[in-house]
Computed example of a mutant assay.
Amino acid sequence: MTLDGLPGLPARIRTYLDAHRGHDVPAAAGCFGPAPVVVDDGRTHRGRDAVRAWLERTSAEYTYTATALTAVSHDDRRWTVAQRLEGDFPGGTVDLAHAFTLDDEGRITGLSIAPWTAG
């Protein structure tokens, strides 16, 4: 499923996912608010500079394709998007849940990435 198959997904989340998938660090970084927090792979990245460094590293580290599995709105500001990544990273395939928190302007203020299991 593409992101187009996820109706109602907020624009900034859609833009972030498309930009990150396309290794467009400036576009992905532009989706975050002024004091974002990203938790990924057991590490916490706080602030715009740390998040941009994380984006640069993760965009260059591996080559992969991402397939959207599902998106769930918890309320106006919290969404979880599950994706299947397939690529040249250890294991080759992983399903990940991206839990987003948005501010009043729709900017990403929080992102937590963890393994996802349907259920």
Results as ranks from 00 to 15, higher is better:
Pro7Val: 02
Pro10Phe: 05
Arg12Ala: 12
Arg14His: 13
Arg14Phe: 03
Tyr16Phe: 15
Leu17Asn: 05
Leu17Trp: 04
Leu17Asp: 09
Asp18Thr: 06
His23Thr: 04
Val25Asp: 12
Pro26Cys: 03
Ala28His: 02
Ala29Met: 06
Ala29Gln: 01
Ala29Asp: 13
Cys31Val: 00
Phe32Asp: 02
Phe32Glu: 02
Pro34Met: 06
Ala35His: 13
Asp40Asn: 15
Gly42Asp: 12
His45Pro: 10
Ala50Asn: 14
Val51His: 12
Val51Cys: 11
Trp54Gln: 00
Arg57Asp: 15
Arg57Gln: 14
Ala60Tyr: 10
Glu61Arg: 15
Thr63Cys: 06
Ala66Gln: 10
Thr70Leu: 13
Ala71Tyr: 02
Ala71Lys: 00
Asp75Tyr: 15
Asp76Met: 10
Asp76Gln: 14
Asp76Ala: 14
Thr80Val: 06
Ala82Lys: 10
Gln83Gly: 02
Arg84Met: 08
Arg84Glu: 10
Arg84Pro: 03
Glu86Leu: 02
Gly87His: 02
Gly87Asn: 03
Phe89Thr: 05
Phe89Asp: 05
Phe89Arg: 02
Phe89Pro: 09
Phe89Val: 02
Thr93Asp: 05
Val94Ile: 08
Val94Leu: 07
Asp95Cys: 13
Thr101Cys: 10
Leu102Met: 12
Asp103Val: 03
Asp103Phe: 03
Asp103Gly: 05
Gly106Ile: 06
Gly106Ser: 12
Thr109Asp: 15
Thr109Tyr: 09
Gly110Met: 10
Gly110Ile: 03
Leu111Lys: 00
Ile113Trp: 07
Pro115Ile: 08
Pro115Ala: 08
Thr117Arg: 15
